[in-house]
Design a protein around this nucleic acid. Sequence first.
DNA 1: TGAGATAATTTGTATGTACAAGCAATGCTG
DNA 2: CAGCATTGCTTGTACATACAAATTATCTCA
Lengths: 145, 145
Amino acid sequence: MEKNNVDNCILDNCLYFTVNKLSRAITRMAEDSFKKTGLSPTHAFCLMLVNNKPGISQSELAEQLHMMPSTITRFIDKLVMKGLIERKAEGKRSFIFPTDDGENTQQEIRAAWKDLFQTYSAILGEEESRLLTALIREAGNKLEK
Amino acid sequence: MEKNNVDNCILDNCLYFTVNKLSRAITRMAEDSFKKTGLSPTHAFCLMLVNNKPGISQSELAEQLHMMPSTITRFIDKLVMKGLIERKAEGKRSFIFPTDDGENTQQEIRAAWKDLFQTYSAILGEEESRLLTALIREAGNKLEK
DNA sequence: TGAGATAATTTGTATGTACAAGCAATGCTG
DNA sequence: CAGCATTGCTTGTACATACAAATTATCTCA
């Protein structure tokens, strides 16, 4: 009955709120695109980084994914369980290598990723998407401190 | 040793990835600003909406927060437990009212919110923040379908 | 009027991510 | 070399959010 589209504006001017709303929307989209790979998008990125640089250390993964080391431990656990990568501990450090299975997944991941890109580009426009991504990346870098 | 700042770009062009990175950064910031209120930012927003419109229904909250109804149920549960709001069930619907305590929290929430805004504006620039928020809001609206 | 269709909320469960504390390996300084 | 600090990883736990299924209430129409 009431025009509540208008009320929204209280929250709509909050960066925290809008970013998280966008995050939920695009996460849904990404999970959809990556469903074929059997991995969540972030796990897939993790595997991608391992494929790109076999022997990468966990801390390097944490750094590139901008996530906490403990989070990476969980990712690795899961990918090891799925037989896609292997840990090679060496002293206190541990280096990660893809298995053959892991390497073979690379193509599917690339395809899923491309699909994601195309899906949101179709809605937002290709050039606009690139621009938005760049702006958001900048803001993220600054706020990360 | 290696210049891995450069490697990043693979992920840095992905909207999903950058949005989530920004989301993590600003969520940390928001949790910090709202710590004084004893609530997480989203719970605080929920209470704010209830204060703004006593008797609001759960579905309306879900709509305004762009979250799933089941999620709202959990929020309400928690805020009720804290004695900040009350449920008034009426048939299958349920209407939410603030308690006195809940109403009294409003000021603190506003202050925390302002603090959040100032904190990120100080880093990103006030005008730039507004602009970025607007762009992100637009994208969020489009991708939500 | 009454039976299925729809709507609002709840419950069970799962996932992603984080923080804090712990452990084990390494490095540093006297 | 001994002892302490640092680094890299793991474990326990917690939280926000979602989805699917269940529950209850309301609506519709023959």
